[in-house]
Design a protein around this nucleic acid. Structure first.
Lengths: 154, 154, 154
DNA sequence: GGCGTTCTAGAATATTCGTAG
DNA sequence: GCTACGAATATTCTAGAACGC
């Protein structure tokens, strides 16, 4: 019965992708990666941070307002970029032609981690920060620490 | 038939959370942790301490006026922070919409200890001060002492 | 002609204490230490953070809303507490007697650092973060690094 | 010696900036 | 360009240490 600290990055990301309230982060088709709409993510997650409207009293979001910093966190936790594409605006009905939609409105980022899969919250404990200190500890065969969600006394 | 000294920190905390008189400290939903409204706690417990109005001559509260010192005591007795959120002011009636309330007015601290559960006063005896000496004793497999509840009982 | 990164803690603190706009932070009588009114500081600096009113679009303040975190920064940069007193509310005019003021409304924190003196911005470069890594480097006789003031100036 | 209070420091995560590849 | 990562600062939670009672 393991549990992770709900205030860490992986836990927040897990809640984001599984929340019907946020439309900027989705599972990919196979449930093994994230699809992130940059513009939507900035507006509904980052700009709506600790002091924003969406906070609503919980401490569930991030302090940063920078999408780049969010990407840095993904990389620190071992996520790899799969691809990056364009999000197209739905074509106005009256307009014909075009090749699949209207103008581009945002970027769509596709990231993947072997420890971040739909319906597998048990894998989250394997998501560790890849700092230089942690890497040295791993190389020395040690266990990585972690902020416990609550550790039993005694 | 154990009893604890009513002047120690755990005993005071137990009385606080179970008293209808104080609104700043509550049990969490599962009765396994504390919810503390910082601003309210400061005003109705700390500022109303030994010399304050609410004290009314009894020695039931804390000596400190510092919320930080109170947190230090929680940690010394093995409490761990679960999370920290914002307390929202109730929305003005005239405003419609919105999703959770008005501006933030205080912090809500959520702390947990395995030996501090609602309706389980019997567990309180396990709450021991985690000083360096006590830790050494525990590591050596010894029993921890405890201040007797004065010579009045037993 | 040295310069420091204006986004670091010492630079922000320097601007705070020298700004007529903020009333919560002052120089002490000898210009060798800081006087910080806790309650005022929380309301006009921390609560008015990145999204607050006082921010006014610049990135000059802190991200934290916790006074404790601010104190941790002071200690990390080598500031030492000199004393702590109470801020008294001005006595209501109609009331006579009393001994120096009304009820206490906040704490006044007095901190000192040898490298933080009025009219001596040149000393700021000696303010370094006292992290364990930096301490080891110092013990090894190395120079401490510092974040350059970005490519905008110089 | 135990307990309460206070100031400082440790250790982990979070955020930012810069740059090698 | 751009992706990943090192390294520095920032924030948070917890613990050490000293002192008084």
């Amino acid at each position: 019965p393991v549990s992770i600290n709900p205030e860490t990055f992986p836990a927040k990301l897990w809640r984001l992708v599984n929340s019907p309230r946020f439309r900027s982060v989705h599972w990919d088709a196979r449930g093994q990666g994230l699809l992130i709409d940059e513009q939507l993510f900035v507006s509904e997650v980052l700009d709506a941070g600790p002091s924003g409207d969406a906070a609503a009293g919980d401490g569930s979001l991030f302090k940063t307002k920078s999408f780049t910093s969010f990407i840095r966190q993904l990389n620190l936790y071992g996520f790899q970029k799969v691809s990056k594409g364009l999000v197209m605006a739905p074509r106005p009905v009256s307009r014909a032609g075009g090749d699949g939609g209207g103008r581009a409105t945002s970027f769509l980022h596709h990231f993947h981690s072997p420890h971040f899969c739909r319906n597998r919250p048990d894998l989250l404990v394997h998501l560790k920060r890849l700092t230089s200190t942690n890497k040295m500890k791993l190389a020395a065969g040690l266990e990585l620490p972690g902020r416990p969600a609550s550790h039993l006394q005694q």
